[in-house]
Amino acid sequence: MNLDVTAIVLQTGLLLLLAPLVSGVIRKGKARLQNRRGPPVWQPYLDLLKFLRKDMVISEHASWVFSFAPYVVFFTALLAGLMVPMVTMQAPLSLFGGVLALVGLLALGRFFLALGGLDPASAFGGMGSSREMTIAAIAEPALMLAIFTVAIAAGSTDLSRIVAATLGPTWSLLNPRHVLAFAALFIVLLAETGRLPVDNPATHLELTMIHEAMLLEYSGRYLAFMEWGASLKQLVLMTLLVNVFFPLGLAPVATPSALAFGLLAYLAKLFVLSCIVVVVETTNAKLRLFRVPDLLSAAFVLAALALLSTFLFQ
């Protein structure tokens, strides 16, 4: 039960470096599917650098909460990422919290993100905060139920143990419980990361934006940390999805060859999931705000079915 400092440092580095790349890949993929050339996949890194260097304009109405929020968003996403097994079976920070802490940390980040949206007294920010908290609230039961389904099978909320239990001899691609819970979590992923059909990450149209509306007053390095935090959160949730449901390839021991294979397998899985996200985003139109609850209740029903299937297929 010791903390492995090298593992923590390596996973932190991997999270920080990989998160913008995933955003870039998704953006590029979307552009290709829409017959555009699109920005290069490393564009998000350049954006981050640019934001870091820029001067900041802070609203005269804003208080310290506004300045504090970007760091909370960034740190909570990063800490949550350390609780998910990425390349190895053992997540470096498993001891400090499992999937419940992960959900809690992301909620803490969202809490401050929404406060940061309200702080500059802009109606756009308030609108974004209101919608973000609403969507998060209705996504949460589906998320938790889907997580409970896998956690119950493992008898633990510790993600390392969950992954180990999933990887057991009974793992199969078409286990109905896994398929249903995966579908539920995938819908939650779209909602939580502000993707179509729930929110459009590419829009700045006043009345449709959710996540971007809260960031409207942010600039300079605060914006950099907000964007980085958002892409970290996306990476964390995607990692959760690919590694909990398809734990193949995770390195059981920390030998160089196992780690290299684990990293390759992980990147491949992430790439596949990104492609799925790209296809879903390109083929779906944005839903009207009050249709989003229907989508998320579908996710809840899927998760409940996943739970029920534990009875039916045993």
Partner: peptide
């Protein structure tokens, strides 16, 4: 698990309420 899910709903709504 169902009451766990409802607890999650409660927590998220409480967060929304206190953001407000």
């Amino acid at each position: 698990p169902l009451s766990g899910a409802m607890l999650a709903l409660t927590g998220a709504l409480a967060a929304a309420c206190f953001v407000k």
